[in-house]
Design a protein around this nucleic acid. Structure first.
Lengths: 203, 203
DNA sequence: GTCTATAACCGGATAGAC
DNA sequence: GTCTATCCGGTTATAGAC
């Protein structure tokens, strides 16, 4: 059985995540979070003291879940080709479940760059493992791109449709939501094809 | 000779751009803009009535300059290959001059998606021209990617290093600014190589 | 733990002197 | 046009009853 305190705390966290992810730290209002949680505004302070601390909690939870997801994908890959496929598939499917995350993180990134880098360093994200995975196949069939450039390429291709959603959906597809969704559905395979065609030399 | 009114107005706009680009609409403070411009806070209201109107001016100026730049690049390209090279070179060089713009636009995009799409529609950005430029070469040496996917690919590859700068510079390069800068310098050519290797079938 | 009431503060906007 | 002083609304935060 769940105690009352965990229950209320959970409701607050859930509501706070919802509001902060949509509005960012500056745009969010404590009242809105309280309404969303169906509780009194002053309870927010009772549980978390200040808006800053509440945001901190939401942000670090969210960010950690992102890093964990990425780590999981990396650990299930051993060759460059499986890595590319697994990463792109895994990453885009997480993004489609939680499309607000990129904006949330990027917004906070420009508001407080320092904090984010510190967060990353507290998570045990193994950067060298990935670099060596990409770099360790001196192979005539693999183009020798800089591993760091390639990592940025892949993440950029996956994330961008989400951070630029209103432009793509509103301008390119004239607010046709169906068209945008099928664009996203096709995109995973497109990225895989696009990257592999570039990385692997054709026979 | 420049009259006093133009002079002050110019100072305000310049200061406002600086602050809004760093902090976004929500995070910016009128006092900070006044300080940056070296004038009194109430003068901001004298010239622009409200924070909203001032932001609007800064945003539309900035956004228009982006669209104009992109349009210019498009109009100087006739084949797919020159388009790819010109676009990537032109776009990355503008971004390196004004690296804050992507964050500014993306932030505003999540705060007020509607407004941005309206802005784009007021500029005479010719979307079909670009699509046809990409799609109009049925050629055995060109992979038949969806033109819209390809546009998103290219823009994503160019923009992402700037919106994620703190992560790349802080985490990947451990705050080595030199390393980040040479990463950016090499990136233009990398993107060109990367995209062309994917788009053009090798002989 | 949860609520109501209110304090304390901040920031955009205005009035009015110069 | 530019300044000082001030207002006013909104938002975070706290005091205190239950």
């Amino acid at each position: 059985m769940v105690s009352k305190i965990e229950n209320t705390e959970f409701k607050i966290i859930t509501a706070a995540r919802k509001v902060f992810l949509r509005k960012g730290m500056d745009g969010a209002r404590m009242q809105e979070i309280a309404d969303e949680a169906g509780i009194n505004k002053s309870l927010l302070h009772y549980y978390f003291r200040s808006k800053d601390k509440l945001f901190d909690r939401v942000f670090s939870d969210t960010f950690k879940s992102v890093v964990e997801t990425i780590n999981k994908v990396f650990s299930t890959s051993d060759t460059l080709e499986t890595f590319l496929e697994n990463f792109i598939k895994g990453y885009t499917s997480v993004l489609r479940e939680k499309p607000y995350i990129p904006n949330f993180v990027l917004h906070e990134l420009s508001r407080n760059p320092q904090r984010i880098v510190e967060y990353i360093n507290t998570t045990n994200f193994d950067k060298s493992r990935i670099i060596s995975l990409i770099a360790s196949e001196p192979d005539l069939n693999v183009r020798p791109y800089d591993p760091l450039q390639l990592i940025v390429d892949i993440i950029a291709l996956c994330i961008f449709p989400f951070v630029a959603r209103p432009i793509i959906s509103g301008f390119l597809f004239e607010d046709d939501v169906e068209a945008y969704n099928s664009f996203l559905e096709e995109r995973t395979q497109h990225i895989i094809d696009f990257v592999k065609a570039s990385v692997f030399v054709q026979k």
